[in-house]
Design a protein around this nucleic acid. Structure first.
Lengths: 193, 193
DNA sequence: CTACTAATGCAAATATCTTTGCTTTAGGAT
DNA sequence: ATCCTAAAGCAAAGATATTTGCATTAGTAG
């Protein structure tokens, strides 16, 4: 009985739910705890596995190394399917987007994870860039009054300044910083257009 | 013969010269090479010791761990005190400044060192930010036609986008990127002013 | 030059991390 | 309910990293 083509649909079939999801949740919470206690520097896979009650080999197979793991988790909370509440008002949408990113990285654990992820970025495109790019595209798509602003403009003028500060100078990140960055972008766009 | 107070001067007597200095030099050059080839996350002390022709135990005794070692070397090397050749022409000066930063971080060793430094930044202000701020101030000081551009503007709109890409997406850093970032800043400034 | 000892070399013993083959569990499609 | 197999568990083997005691080299003060 040649019932061969069982799974010829599209995806190579993953299993993100159930047990896998629970392991991920335990890992994520353990990473945050360990980073808060000992910093990201000395974090190892066996250490993490022990705390999370998971086999080290599972982590090695799933992520390969601690760097990839941190890189993925660094943007987890902010990322995957977070609905951006888009109103179509360009200025307002950009502002709330920026504020959300700043708020996220104002939590020390999140900032620490970003820095840890930065250490092993540069070979493959990081989530920190890919997800922001997708969000920027979504904002522009809905915006009624974005003028000639491009995705790269949003990355360069909103995301980049924020991330730059998160990494090198987290103490001067606040609501005022958001206003400065976004206000400048919007004001100028209006003035020119 | 109570010749006791031999070394009661100040320091508990170190030996920074000669052999130690040579070991340090070899370590530094090896770090740069290895980091450029494999990134900073997989760098280990035995690996480094082998390349530098030094005993691992010497490095363990001297630095304790790879993090301390990198931290020391990174702050040492990050910024040469190069003279910015300023003409007073704001657009031209900003452009050559940006181009120089891009050129610097286009060298893989330098990009890798930046990422490695990023991993342990965030507690004290990094050279990467302090030096850029000083340079931005120097540019504005000499510029005849900078309008109302501030130091923070230059950091947010020139340095930040470049560093963001260096860390997360080095492959789309090129002369065209400099043109985009700087051109936008200058064009808008002219249009508004 | 000589004495003192910091810094390194060397090598064996430990401790840790990483890989790997196999088994068991359980997600998802039919 | 049943099948298929992705994902996790387990444990042993292998590879690396780290510590440590002692020997050797060489920087610095006198």
């Amino acid at each position: 009985m040649a019932v061969a083509q069982v799974q010829r649909t599209d995806a190579p079939s993953r299993r993100p739910g159930g047990r896998s999801a629970e392991v991920l949740a335990r890992i994520r919470s353990s990473v945050e705890g360990l980073i808060a206690e000992h910093g990201a520097e000395s974090l190892t896979i066996p250490m993490l596995a022990k705390r999370a009650g998971v086999q080290p080999s599972s982590l090695y197979r799933r992520w390969g190394d601690i760097g990839s793991l941190l890189n993925e988790l660094a943007t987890y909370k902010l990322d995957p399917n977070r609905p951006l509440s888009l109103t179509g008002d360009f200025a307002a949408d950009v502002r709330s987007w920026a504020a959300e990113i700043v708020a996220h990285y104002s939590i020390p654990e999140n900032a620490a994870m970003l820095r840890a992820g930065a250490a092993c970025a540069g070979t493959r495109e990081s989530d920190c860039l890919r997800h922001r790019r997708a969000e920027a595209a979504a904002i522009l798509e809905q915006a009624r009054d974005a003028g000639d602003t491009t995705v790269e403009d949003l990355l360069n003028r909103v995301t980049a300044p924020i991330i730059y500060r998160v990494i090198f100078s987290p103490w001067d990140l606040d609501a005022g910083f958001v206003d400065g960055v976004v206000g400048n972008l919007v004001r100028v766009r209006v003035a020119v257009g």
